[in-house]
């Protein structure tokens, strides 16, 4: 463990907590893409199949459980409890366009052709594009509540910090994982225009407005 990876995990945890708090306190999931949340739940489910078979540390196991619980709690809040506030009309990204290519690629490019490893690889590829429905929704509505933009900033920062972690691990212990690293770069690049808007607008107290 290093501070970059710990920082990334905490940024990820912060993002998940911000989202749950936003939905719970405003009792609304307006502006949030349920489809992205489905992809995140799918990502954690496919990635943490080794929760009971591969014990790394208490921290690792606890965080996996927290991520899984939070992902499904968010789905429950969005599709059951506050279903009436879910914005179907703007959350129209076709999930099969993301799930099928990720699954296909995971079968072709992986570290080992075993169930657990292919599922891990699938989760890595899926996570890289899981935010697309959310970014698509923000571009369709043309704006995002500031709490939603804080959520996106924390979520984008998490994988950016993981990239720093991979560079650090390469130089400090010779560890590298090209699949996770390249997917992480793609994932972070997808946030770039959002990061620009967040830093130039939201941090100056303006609302996140996308150029129409």
């Amino acid at each position: 463990m290093n501070i970059f990876r710990l920082g990334g995990d905490l940024a990820h945890l912060l993002a998940i907590i911000i989202l749950l708090l936003k939905i719970w306190t405003t009792r609304s999931c307006a502006g949030i893409s349920g489809k992205s949340q489905i992809l995140f739940a799918l990502t954690f489910t496919a990635r943490y199949l080794d929760l009971f078979t591969n014990f790394v540390s208490v921290y690792n196991s606890v965080m996996k459980v927290v991520y899984l619980a939070a992902a499904y709690a968010t789905l429950y809040l969005m599709y059951v409890k506050f279903k009436a506030t879910y914005d179907h009309n703007h959350d129209t990204f076709r999930l099969e366009f993301l799930i099928l290519p990720a699954a296909g690629l995971a079968l072709i490019i992986n570290h080992e052709f075993s169930i657990i490893e292919v599922m891990w690889t699938f989760s890595i590829y899926l996570e890289a594009v899981a935010i697309l429905p959310q970014l698509f929704m923000v571009s369709k509505t043309g704006e995002a509540e500031s709490i939603t933009s804080h959520y996106l900033f924390a979520l984008g920062s998490y994988r950016a910090l993981y990239i720093v972690n991979w560079v650090y691990r390469y130089y400090s212990e010779g560890f590298y994982d090209m699949i996770a690293t390249l997917a992480g770069v793609v994932q972070t690049v997808l946030y770039c225009d959002f990061f620009y808007l967040y830093i130039t607008k939201v941090l100056k107290g303006k609302k996140l407005q996308l150029p129409a």
Binding site: R5, D9, H12, D50, T53, N54, V56, N60, M63, K64, Y67, H111, E112, I116, W120, Y162, N165, G174, F175, Y176, D177, M178, A180
Partner: peptide, 10 residues
């Protein structure tokens, strides 16, 4: 790359 048995990252 040397592969850890399983993955140690979240």
């Amino acid at each position: 790359c040397h592969r850890l048995l399983g993955h140690d990252e979240l």
